[in-house]
Simulated scan of single mutants.
Amino acid sequence: MNTPFQGFPETAERIVYVRPVAVADLPDDIREQVGEAETVYSVHAPDGQQLALVADRKLAFHLARSHDYAPVSVH
Rank of each mutant, 00 (worst) to 15 (best):
D25Q: 05
S42G: 07
R65I: 07
D25Y: 01
Q33I: 06
A55T: 09
L59K: 14
G48Y: 01
L53H: 00
A55I: 09
V23P: 03
A64C: 13
E36P: 07
D56H: 06
V54R: 10
A52E: 11
G48F: 04
E32W: 00
E36S: 12
V54H: 04
P46R: 03
V40G: 05
L26I: 05
D28K: 01
P27L: 04
R65F: 05
S42N: 03
V34Q: 01
L59N: 08
A24Y: 04
H67P: 01
D68P: 01
D68G: 12
L59Y: 11
L51W: 12
H67L: 15
D47S: 05
S66G: 10
H44Y: 05
A45H: 13
H44I: 03
H67T: 10
D56G: 08
V40H: 07
E32H: 00
P27R: 02
E38K: 13
E36W: 08
V23W: 06
E32Y: 00
T39V: 15
V23D: 07
A64W: 14
D29A: 01
Y69I: 08
Q49R: 08
A64Y: 12
R65Y: 06
A70C: 12
D56V: 05
E36R: 10
R57H: 10
H67S: 13
I30E: 02
A60Q: 06
L26M: 10
S66N: 15
D56Q: 03
A55W: 06
D25W: 01
Q49E: 11
Q50G: 07
L59Q: 14
V43S: 14
Q33K: 11
R65G: 10
E38I: 08
E32C: 02
A24R: 08
D28C: 00
L53Q: 04
V40I: 10
A52R: 11
Y41M: 05
A45K: 04
P46V: 00
A64L: 13
D28T: 01
E32V: 03
V34A: 02
P27A: 09
A55Y: 09
G48L: 02
D68W: 11
D28N: 01
R31G: 02
A52W: 08
D47H: 01
S66C: 10
E38R: 13
A70G: 11
